[in-house]
Write a protein that binds this DNA or RNA. Sequence first.
DNA 1: GACGAACGTTAGTGAAGACTGACGATGATG
DNA 2: CATCATCGTCAGTCTTCACTAACGTTCGTC
Lengths: 169, 169
Amino acid sequence: MGRPVAFVDQHPGRGRREPGRAVGLSRPPAPGGSSQLPAPGGSSRPPAPGGAWDGGTDPATDEALRALAEPRRRAILRLVAHQELPAGQIAAAFEVTRTAVSQHLTVLKNAGLLTERRDGTRRLYRARPEGLAGLRQLLDHLWAASLDAARQLVEAERGIVDDEREAAG
Amino acid sequence: MGRPVAFVDQHPGRGRREPGRAVGLSRPPAPGGSSQLPAPGGSSRPPAPGGAWDGGTDPATDEALRALAEPRRRAILRLVAHQELPAGQIAAAFEVTRTAVSQHLTVLKNAGLLTERRDGTRRLYRARPEGLAGLRQLLDHLWAASLDAARQLVEAERGIVDDEREAAG
DNA sequence: GACGAACGTTAGTGAAGACTGACGATGATG
DNA sequence: CATCATCGTCAGTCTTCACTAACGTTCGTC
């Protein structure tokens, strides 16, 4: 069915867990076929209606978002936002096994949200502010754009009301 | 094993999809047993080491984060951030079926990230800036706290270096 | 060297989640 | 009224993901 293709959402089929990758956060199928769809700002094609398209999030931001979608990982990040803590102390704050917490720490680290430092047998973790930069940028962009859309609607309504007044007057 | 319980991570076991809830985003098991753990700011208990604990995210923000963790939902939100669009036009921008896009629209709407308006047979969707407020707040808080932690480490290093100079001098 | 502490990795399990095909609902048109 | 357009819901399938138990690695101590 001849569909308008503003962008190509290639779905190469779901794969198994990638070898060498931690539990959780397998690389998602690039919804847009990311090699085909440059990010906004670097576009070599005119954007789809509405200006933004898939592939608009760099992989680091995607990984950070998916890492934070799990409540325990958010809790971990909150714990180590103020000061670095050893893995054991972080794990003690959770009801799940130390193994599960260790796996979450790995996901956060791989997503660039944590730094790790070794001190003898201990591994000390701390939140990494740079890891949040892409997320903040994404949200700021969405925020600004959605305010813009809301403003357009208000103005459109005002135009309609004014037109109706003119027709009646 | 007598564990220090900074907070209780109750895990009532994963449940089936809740009746009446859309595909995707079943209510996650509250990692902290949220009725037991007030959010920061309203705390009736001293906070865990590091100041933040689980249950620190209100359900709306949790749902928004999980909604945005899926790349296609982010793409949808980008599409409708600048202007409202009908469901069919949104779906035309994706390779997956219209059913899948419809399900994603429902998830975004339930997460408070989209508004819907009907125009005859069409349903028009637009990004909802208020839906992002909690996420922005969460990230701002994490950003500020992690800068604080980085600063503490730098100062601690400076203190160590200074102490070493005093010992050698 | 052995042993213990601190912590990560592997493999398997069960639930959540994203998808599709088929079907249902609502509004507009003739 | 029937028919079409627009779009959502339902049920099933398959993949992803968070968990646990068991095992492995590194560092410090004796």
